[in-house]
Amino acid sequence: DNLVIALHSYEPSHDGDLGFEKGEQLRILEQSGEWWKAQSLTTGQEGFIPFNFVAKA
């Protein structure tokens, strides 16, 4: 599955970004460039995340 774990917390800075906490698990929905579309397994919310803040779970 496309699961990743957050290496750092991220505060959203643009509409459509997904904020998350360090250690949170996310499911990657789309990989494109440096911003990936993801869904939080904690909150169920979707949005874009910086790819370098996460690692394969």
Rank of each mutant, 00 (worst) to 15 (best):
L18N: 01
L26I: 05
G33K: 04
N2P: 06
L26Y: 01
G47M: 03
N2W: 13
L7C: 14
E34R: 13
N2D: 11
E30M: 08
F53M: 11
A6P: 00
F53W: 10
S9T: 12
F48P: 01
Q31W: 13
T42L: 14
Q45R: 13
P12E: 03
W35M: 12
I49C: 07
E21G: 08
F53A: 09
L18W: 05
E30H: 08
I28K: 00
A6C: 05
V54P: 02
G16M: 08
I49Y: 03
Y10M: 04
P50A: 03
L18F: 06
F53Y: 14
L3V: 12
S32D: 12
L41E: 04
Q39Y: 09
S40G: 01
I49N: 02
E34F: 15
Y10K: 06
E11W: 14
E11N: 13
I28T: 01
I28R: 01
L3P: 01
D17P: 03
S13L: 15
L3A: 03
K22W: 04
L41Y: 04
N2L: 14
K22T: 06
H14L: 08
L7V: 09
Q25M: 15
A55L: 08
D1E: 12
E46I: 15
L26E: 01
G16Y: 10
G47L: 03
I49P: 05
R27E: 03
E30P: 02
P50H: 09
V4Q: 04
D1A: 10
G44A: 05
G44K: 07
E24L: 02
L29N: 02
F20I: 06
Q25N: 08
Q25L: 15
G23C: 07
D15Y: 10
E34W: 12
R27I: 13
L7M: 08
E24T: 05
T43P: 00
L29H: 02
S40T: 03
L26V: 02
P12V: 06
G44C: 11
Q31R: 13
T42V: 14
G33D: 05
K56Q: 11
N52M: 08
G19K: 12
V4T: 04
F48L: 11
Q39C: 08
T43I: 01
S9N: 11
E11Q: 15
W36S: 02
L41S: 03
S32Q: 13
F48V: 07
L18A: 02
W35F: 11
N52I: 07
F20M: 05
K22L: 07
G19Y: 06
I49T: 00
D17E: 15
D1I: 11
I5W: 07
G19I: 04
Q39P: 01
L18K: 03
T42N: 10
E46L: 12
A55T: 14
D1P: 09
S9F: 07
A55D: 09
L26H: 00
S40C: 06
G23I: 02
H8N: 08
A38L: 07
A38V: 14
E24R: 00
K37H: 09
L3F: 11
V54N: 04
S32V: 14
E11F: 14
E34V: 13
S13Q: 15
S9E: 05
N2C: 15
S40L: 05
D1C: 15
T43E: 02
A57F: 13
S40R: 09
E11H: 14
K22M: 09
F51C: 15
N2A: 08
P50Y: 11
E21N: 10
V4P: 00
L18P: 00
A57N: 09
